[in-house]
């Protein structure tokens, strides 16, 4: 009895939120689905029903495959680097030393800055004429002449990934630091008495408490990296020669630059589906890891 009442009440309480969600997400989504089956342009004609044409064309284009690979690369390298750097930073900031509190606060800064600011900052650093990176590298003799880091396909992706890491490692570090502080002192003490070296201490004492939160961070970061748009748009617009074009950029170009709303919509839905699958897959993993050190 009370069970059904509780359920009813739960739905009632969620109703306002549901209405808003349907209005701002559900409805546009439905419209996107409708669009994806038409040959609508961004402006002008209504467009007519073309069935799965858009999907077939998008999925079979070399552009799509190339962009997918670029996206996966970006996600793989940047997320891996962020996880490693984040955990190392957390381990460092978990030590006791003078100035730790200040450093902890400072570390959050890159993440707290708006992406646009961050991206602009890195554009300045990479600037081919007066960029700090060029200056630094030539002054210590690693570089003969100034380079256009974002202007050459060979370096643009790396430069982007570095900027993305700089922005996002603090999130991982923050989550890891919180987890580290939850490691019981007594277990650390026990491992010292038992004679565990630093590596074994990390593996058997710290990692069980770190694993769950880190998986959550990994999920968050991977999904975000897969959808990445703003930092790339500000820094390279997907160039040079499409070398930094990710799926979200491609969706944008298709729908807005080339004004093909229909095929843009189909592409957007394909990306949405991929991210959803990613989220579901990770959800299962998170469930498995959550409370691994209970």
């Amino acid at each position: 009895m009370s069970g059904t009442w509780l359920t009813t009440r739960a739905w009632l309480l969620m109703l306002p939120l549901l209405i808003v969600m349907i209005a701002v997400i559900g409805w546009p989504m439905m419209d996107t689905v409708r669009l994806s089956f038409t040959d609508s342009k961004l402006v002008g004609t209504q467009g007519s029903f073309v069935g799965l044409d858009n999907y077939v064309r998008m999925l079979s284009s070399t552009n799509f495959t190339r962009t997918l690979v670029t996206t996966l690369w970006f996600a793989l390298i940047s997320v891996t680097a962020e996880m490693v750097i984040g955990v190392l930073a957390a381990l460092l900031l978990n030590q006791e030393f003078y100035g730790r509190t200040v450093l902890r606060a400072l570390m959050i800064l890159p993440w707290a800055l708006p992406t646009i600011v961050n991206a602009t900052l890195w554009r300045l650093i990479y600037n081919p004429e007066y960029g700090a990176l060029n200056a630094a590298l030539t002054q210590i003799g690693l570089l003969d002449a100034y380079r256009s880091w974002l202007g050459e396909p060979a370096t643009a992706m790396i430069a982007l990934i570095a900027a993305d890491c700089w922005k996002n490692f603090p999130l991982v570090a923050l989550i890891a630091l919180a987890a580290l502080q939850a490691v019981p002192r007594d277990i650390v003490s026990a491992s010292l008495v038992d004679g565990a070296n630093a590596w074994n201490r990390f593996r058997y004492v710290v990692l069980p408490y770190l694993a769950g939160p880190l998986v959550v961070a990994l999920v968050l970061r991977t999904i975000e990296a897969f959808k990445v748009f703003d930092i790339i748009w500000v820094m390279t617009r997907g160039g040079p020669a499409n070398s930094t074009r990710t799926l979200s950029i491609l969706v944008y170009q298709e729908a807005f630059s080339f004004q093909r709303a229909g095929s843009g919509a189909s592409l957007a839905l394909i990306v949405t589906l991929m991210v959803t699958l990613l989220a579901i897959a990770y959800g299962t993993v998170v469930k498995k890891f959550a409370g691994s050190a209970a």
């Binding site: 019981p184 007594d186 277990i187 003490s189 026990a190 491992s191 010292l192 008495v193 038992d194 004679g195 058997y204 004492v205 069980p208 408490y209 691994s292 050190a293 209970a294």
Partner: peptide
């Protein structure tokens, strides 16, 4: 580890995994 002692803690302090 080199003191030739062993210790038992209030919170048991077992390795969780």
């Amino acid at each position: 580890k080199d003191r030739d002692i062993a210790m038992v803690f209030q919170s048991y302090a077992l390795y969780p995994n």
